[in-house]
Amino acid sequence: MESITVTFKLNGKTTAVAIEPLESLRTVLREHLHLHATKAGCGQGGCGSCTVLVNDEPVLSCLMLAALADGQEVTTLEGIGTPPHMHPLQTAFFDRFAAQCGYCSPGMIMAAKALLDKNPHPTRAEIAEALAGNLCRCTGYVAILDAIEDVVTQMQEA
């Protein structure tokens, strides 16, 4: 197949990239643009570790054709914070030991960000609901929920 060029806003910067027409957004992010924070856990839409934001909506980038990102706004974990200027969610995950092996963390944080951008004051049950598509095999989720609740509390106090 002929390669095609897609152009989208990636972490705030307009980016054009030549891709194979059937490549997933995840493959393009990781293997063409070498943004490795977005993880590949299953390629089946089952684990959530490849979650990115497309126009502020959480999307499983393994299931989305990169071609469909043309003209859209894509945000990956790299786009929300890097040391020493971490996003409050990243700081809270670190402080709460919410990352153990770390493989699910990027997807978890992006799913949490999508929630908080829409609903800054979710209940614990609403947080759990928003993360239900993101699997973690290490932590048992408690520390992750605690971290996100910390950020909710900080935003209420701010």
Partner: peptide, 23 residues
């Protein structure tokens, strides 16, 4: 003491390099 994880910031910022991140 519950000192923070040495690899924690790498994990939460996606900068930890796993094998699939090697190209």
């Amino acid at each position: 003491q519950s000192v923070k994880r040495r690899d924690g910031i790498g994990h939460v910022t996606g900068q930890t390099q796993y094998v699939d991140d090697v190209f």
